[in-house]
Write a protein that binds this DNA or RNA. Sequence first.
DNA 1: ATAATCTGGTACTAACTAGTACCAATGTCA
DNA 2: TGACATTGGTACTAGTTAGTACCAGATTAT
Lengths: 199, 199
Amino acid sequence: MSRGDDRREAILEAATELFLKHGYEGTSLDMVIARAGGSRRTVYERFGNKEGLFAAVVEDMLDKLLAKLSQLDWAEGAPQEVLTRIGTAFIRALVAPRAVALFRIVIGEVSRFPKLGTSMFERGPERAYAQVGKYISAQVDGGTFKPVDPDLAARQLLEMIKGDMHLRALLGARRAPSGKEIERHVSSAVATFLNGAAV
Amino acid sequence: MSRGDDRREAILEAATELFLKHGYEGTSLDMVIARAGGSRRTVYERFGNKEGLFAAVVEDMLDKLLAKLSQLDWAEGAPQEVLTRIGTAFIRALVAPRAVALFRIVIGEVSRFPKLGTSMFERGPERAYAQVGKYISAQVDGGTFKPVDPDLAARQLLEMIKGDMHLRALLGARRAPSGKEIERHVSSAVATFLNGAAV
DNA sequence: ATAATCTGGTACTAACTAGTACCAATGTCA
DNA sequence: TGACATTGGTACTAGTTAGTACCAGATTAT
């Protein structure tokens, strides 16, 4: 039970780094094997073929990237604080170098792997929308916010927070933003939002 | 002067369709030649090599996509009307199938062609931000808007308008939105924005 | 220790690729 | 019409790729 899992893990890790760096077509199984050690046979036994290996890599990375987002504190502080905290984590997760690299590859390979694209959206941004929507809904019920459409409001807020940072990062049109830049940016978006939504 | 240009045009058109459909690596010069007619020699004489052909295709598509955006009416109507009109054109241009396909390829090939990514951002979204910023700045000067930071406000507005539609489209996580959906979406974003920015 | 299973390494197949070379045919221009 | 440049088609080179086959050696369990 240990030998196989070790090999699987090593292959997955090597493939992850290589796919992130060179893309799907740019990564050959020879490269994966050279990095992970082992032989072609093991790869094909564990993952079926190259597509299977790629799908496994994406799934694995998604899990790891999203793990951080699921343990956020939604209770502590006023809405302004909570939304800033959540928003900061959201944008940080989106522009993290590994996340950007993953987005690039998945977007570039959407026509070959349509499911990976929808899966990525639903497990990432879509979930964030839903959670923020729930929070806003509670604020509306509690009378802290005007009676806005929670889902729409959540999307508008998060998109303002995301700003052009994500697209910029995807297109490589900028160096990674600093922590302070992110903070200022998020605060400003939350302020604009609360200006319209808070009672 | 005519024979050569004809061949160039035919090759460019064939290459455009094929790159959009199969991506950079997925398109071979044999496919381009089979579609355009002619011979390898002509391709190499006109475009140097495969990279040159790809760069030419992207430049050409960018020009054509952006041509529509540059002829908008910024004078007619109240801010609410103007911003809705501009915003609608903006989002329509972003989610148009050919634009989405182009974004996908460029994003997927950013590491191979870094310049194409930045060029795409600067000639597309960045220009829209600047133009809307100028408009907002004029409104601030005229007293129609509160004294907001025009550039920041423009970005927030356009990002709200863009919403999740672009990322969704890039990830193939949705069918193309209908005209009415877009209209409703843009109006709502403009309303939220004016709620915070208008005097 | 011995039998059964799994793995590493390598060799191989069949197919595809970008780019070069070359000649006959076609079109252009004087 | 005749000189000249351009183009089509094809063949070729050198390299790469995913996937298969196979055997000796390592690992595990009995």
